[in-house]
Design a protein around this nucleic acid. Structure first.
Length: 675
RNA sequence: UGGCUGAUGGUGUAACUGGCAACACGUCUGAUUUUGGUUCAGAAGAGUCCAGGUUCGAGCCCUGGUCGGCCAACCA
């Protein structure tokens, strides 16, 4: 199979073609142990480890532990657990902190070469001298301090003689560089905190840029892949390596890709931490969190997450991937592997009046129809059952395939029943449904009666045998597709208040008394569920991973079609593009529309046209005749201009005339209107 | 006002040296079905951000724009 390559693979292939030895390929995944991994990290993990598998190259797991004030062993452990769970194994477990001595020695070398100096200004002073992206910086008064003096001060920094914040070591590069990162970046700062690995051995710690590239070099990583926001760091990354580079060794190269965003959630450790700390969620592994541990607890499988990363791909542009793709991946996996069981979440009592009281039958049910070898298990059947309240309507109507009075349905793996009557309380709520069953129709009996075709098949549990459980259903955490893309609003404002729905008394078939944390279940007709950590002996708690695809629910709710162009109604969207641009955009789609949608589109063009000047519009009179939509947009705008007092000059007349002769009906009609 | 970077169906990605814009999700039909699931068959949906240019031919090359993202932590 010849898969198409992503742009990183193209880079590697090109390097290989240019003589780079395949055996020297080496990658790394470099998390900072300051939080839990999320689905965005999974993209990076799958990229790096996937490359390792593809080229049979080692992949290191390297903890970027250069800031002890934010990092903890707990995070190190969680990160290792998550990567291993995803099914990847790293060649070496590395830590930036392993290289502290080497990094220090190289820093001393830089000072001796007059490429670094100790600064003793406040961070405010240093920031002020840094300039802005549009104005150059100014030199620190300590920039030309003799290197012997810097050497002495750096040694004393290391020995703990100075307070935190009083001294830093800076690289001497270029205070007027257009790249802010090159304006004498800080190499070392003093932090008096306990480091989770080096303890109190050090009180000076290297900054990210100084540690990262050099660590790549030490480990001889060939391709150092990171996200787009580090693009501006690349120049510095290269500068640092230049200072210590030995041409006999491999020189790492940094390349950047776009981070993966998921709709209806946030994907930054800082924001996820905020959710945890504000107790909006129960913890890093809350099943609503986009963390690997959250998804695991929710019931996602490693296969599904790797598949998702595979399908979503990797590129350089900003993106928001729809969660429906993730949901597709987990459904696909679970459909093949989940054990089918029956559970009723919102029960109503069903009495089979012609079934003997006290009788119990144990019926066979397939564990998984997708896997013929998966066997069967027994389900008890009796006179009184629970079915789903939504599965009964006294008068269902034509499109209602479930149970209604006088109507026959099949009970899954059991018998056909026909509803005869209902018992209600004073408020009209149904308390019991009374029905009769056909004794000849038992599933699997092979009888003629058992092979009848009916539209509906319902799931059920026997009341006397059912076990109770808590079932937690989850909805998206945010109501907004991209909650953190609004500059003027905090992402917390978009929280979905109903993201958790806990059902305290759901009824499960007794088979589930032996449910395990590893096993995945399909509650038939409802969705995929998995046991939660909160379960204990006698108290079962299930998480709903994802629902089954539900075309019935879709029919009932008038959800707006998702495959239509989004109406550009937001003020923000409109103000960001010029009116003319909007007209062109709408115009393009015009020839695909008809009826009401066409009217709406044409009207919005007319609205935008109010903000367009003749001078802007005129160049478009020459628009190629095959671009009919654009020409209609231009013509409509001309109409508005004329209405507002624009004089009809020769150019306009010519344009209108050419539209009249066009093949397109709309164009002709609109042109006629303008004379 | 600067530097860097990106723009391809509703969404995410492809398209090697310029050659019929492809795949997946999603959407919509129909068939099958003891899950309104699955499976199978099919459909709709893009003038590749805009305007020029080069070329027999441009998503790709050139020129000029537009719009988005990133960059001024002793964070990573």
């Amino acid at each position: 199979m010849t898969e198409s390559l992503n742009f990183i693979e193209h880079i590697i292939e090109e390097d290989l073609a240019n003589g780079f030895h395949k055996e020297k390929l080496r990658f790394r995944f470099p998390p900072e142990p300051n939080g839990y991994l999320h689905i965005g990290h999974a993209a990076s993990i799958c990229l790096n480890f996937g490359l390792g598998e593809k080229y049979n190259a080692p992949v290191n797991l390297r903890f970027d532990d250069t800031n002890p004030s934010k990092e903890e062993q707990e995070y190190v452990d969680a990160i290792k657990r998550d990567i291993a769970w995803l099914g990847f194994s790293w060649a070496n477990e590395c830590y930036a902190s392993d290289y502290f001595q080497q990094l220090h020695d190289w820093a001393v070398q830089l000072i001796k070469e007059d490429k670094a100096y100790v600064d003793q200004q406040t961070s405010e002073q240093i920031a002020a001298q840094k300039g802005t992206p549009t104005t150059v910086g100014t030199a620190s008064p300590y920039r030309n301090r003799p290197s012997s003096e810097s050497l002495d001060l750096f040694e004393r920094m290391k020995n703990g003689e100075f307070a935190a914040g009083s001294y830093v070591l800076r690289a001497k590069i270029d205070m007027s560089s257009p790249n802010m990162h090159m304006r004498d970046p800080i190499l070392y700062r003093i932090i008096n905190a306990h480091h989770h690995r080096t303890g109190n051995k050090w009180c000076i710690y290297p900054m990210y840029d100084w540690a990262h590239g050099e660590s790549d070099y030490i480990e001889q990583v060939s391709h150092s892949l990171c996200t787009l926001e580090f693009k501006a760091h690349r120049e510095l990354y290269d500068w640092y390596i230049d200072q210590i580079y030995d041409s006999k060794l491999l020189r790492p190269k940094q390349r950047e890709f776009a981070r993966r965003n998921l709709s209806y959630t946030v994907m930054s450790k800082r924001k996820l931490l905020e959710l945890v700390q504000n107790k909006v969620v129960a913890g890093w592994d809350d099943p609503r969190m986009p963390t690997i541990s959250g998804l695991r607890r929710r019931g996602y499988t490693p296969t599904s997450i790797r598949k998702f990363s595979d399908l979503a791909g990797i590129a350089k542009r900003d993106n928001v991937t729809d969660v429906s793709l993730l949901e597709f991946c987990i459904r696909e996996d679970l459909n093949k592997t989940a054990t089918r069981v029956m559970a009723v979440l919102n029960p109503v009592k069903l009495v089979i009046t012609n079934y003997p009281e006290g009788k119990v039958e144990f019926l066979e049910m397939e564990n998984n129809p997708e896997q013929p070898d998966s066997g069967t298990h027994e389900v008890p059947f009796s006179r009184e059952l629970y079915i789903e309240r939504e599965d009964f309507k006294e008068d269902g109507g034509k499109n209602f395939f479930r149970l209604s009075l006088g109507n026959e349905v099949r009970l899954k793996s059991a018998y056909f029943i026909k509803a005869e009557s209902v018992v209600k309380d004073e408020a009209g709520t149904i308390l019991e449904i009374h029905c009769t069953y056909d004794p000849e129709s038992r599933s699997g009996s092979g009888s003629e009666a058992s092979q009848r075709k009916v539209k509906g098949t319902l799931h059920w549990v026997s009341i006397a045998h059912a076990i109770k459980a808590v079932v937690r259903e989850y909805d998206r955490l945010f109501l907004e597709e991209a909650p953190d893309s609004h500059e003027e609003k905090n992402f917390m404002e978009f929280m979905n208040p109903n993201s958790l729905n806990s059902i305290n008394e759901a009824y499960l078939e007794p088979f589930l008394a032996n449910a395990t944390l590893d096993e995945k279940y399909q509650f038939q007709r409802l969705g995929y569920f998995t046991l939660d950590l909160d379960s204990s002996d006698g108290k079962l708690v299930f998480n709903k991973t994802v629902g089954l695809k539900d075309t019935w629910a879709k029919q009932n709710t008038e959800t707006p079609a998702q495959n239509q162009p989004k109406p550009q109604t937001s003020v923000q969207a409109q103000s960001q593009r010029s009116a003319l641009n909007e007209i062109q955009q709408i115009g393009k789609k015009l020839t695909n529309l008809s009826g009401e949608k066409l009217e709406t589109a044409m009207n919005s063009i007319r609205e935008f046209a109010e903000d367009v000047t003749y001078d802007e519009l005129e160049p478009l009179f020459g628009t190629a005749s095959k671009k009919t939509g654009t020409r209609i947009g231009v013509l409509l705008s001309v109409g508005v201009l004329l209405k507002n007092g624009q004089v009809k000059n020769q150019a306009i007349s010519d344009f209108i005339e050419s539209c009249k002769n066009d093949e397109n009906e709309i164009l002709k009609v609109e042109a006629e209107k303008l004379g």
